[in-house]
Design a protein around this nucleic acid. Sequence first.
DNA 1: CTGTGTTAC
DNA 2: GTAACACAG
Length: 268
Amino acid sequence: MNKKTIYSLIAILIVFGIYGYEFFLNQEETLEIVETGKEVKNNTNEYFLPVSTTNQIIHHEGYSLSYSELHEQAEWVAYELKKEHLSNSHFERPYFEIDKAVKTGAAHWRNYKNSGYDRGHLCPAGDRRYSQKAHDETFLTSNISPQEHQFNSGIWNKLEQKVRYWASKYDGVFVITGGVLKGDMETIGDDEVYVPNQFYKVLIDNNSGKTKMIAFLMPHKKSDAPLYEFVVSVDAIEALTGIDFFPQLDDALETQLEASSSYKGWSF
DNA sequence: CTGTGTTAC
DNA sequence: GTAACACAG
């Protein structure tokens, strides 16, 4: 064996050693989240992860998600929007990238090209403007869902802005959002990305006194109706999606809060 | 804010 | 693939 061959072998060993170590770390991290359902991260106070029905939770710095390989998108994306996250910084929109953390392979953005649908953010770029990294991290294809432009830039955008308003007013909120991946759906692109017929958003305010929740269910179409007309109970979203939200809460409190479809306490 | 499409290298 | 620019709700 000459020197060049030996160096090559060493390089290969190092690369695979690092890869294997990171894989090991990721396994541990995933297990911990699945078991506890709640993780305390150094950049958030409370992390209310729902249960993953697809058994694939991905954890990014700015948000977490549960990926559905069948539908080629997240069944939910969850993140805390702190008051101090709100910022007026402007970053240029980067290109969407495939989320390499999705082991089964996330969709390519080409599926959306010329599909007639927007690449609709689930964790909005506007909610992660506190750093370039957090902002750019939202441009992963695991964080988007096909949305009609009139819906995305209209009523859905209005709801996202209301969430930022509440984050400011109530000293932060925790947000869980996604498309309802049930029933007959159209698909787009070679990867067959499903087009949800409804989108939901579930919020919890655990910071400004008495814990409160609110949930929205919106048909995937343009609307000029006021936001409060889309309020439903968390139970209704659970029944529709099969996702269990807030398993971390005390059972009695969870039952009480999730049954309510009242938006008392949330100012519009 | 939320996005798309076209053109050129 | 990336970058610059025009455009729309």
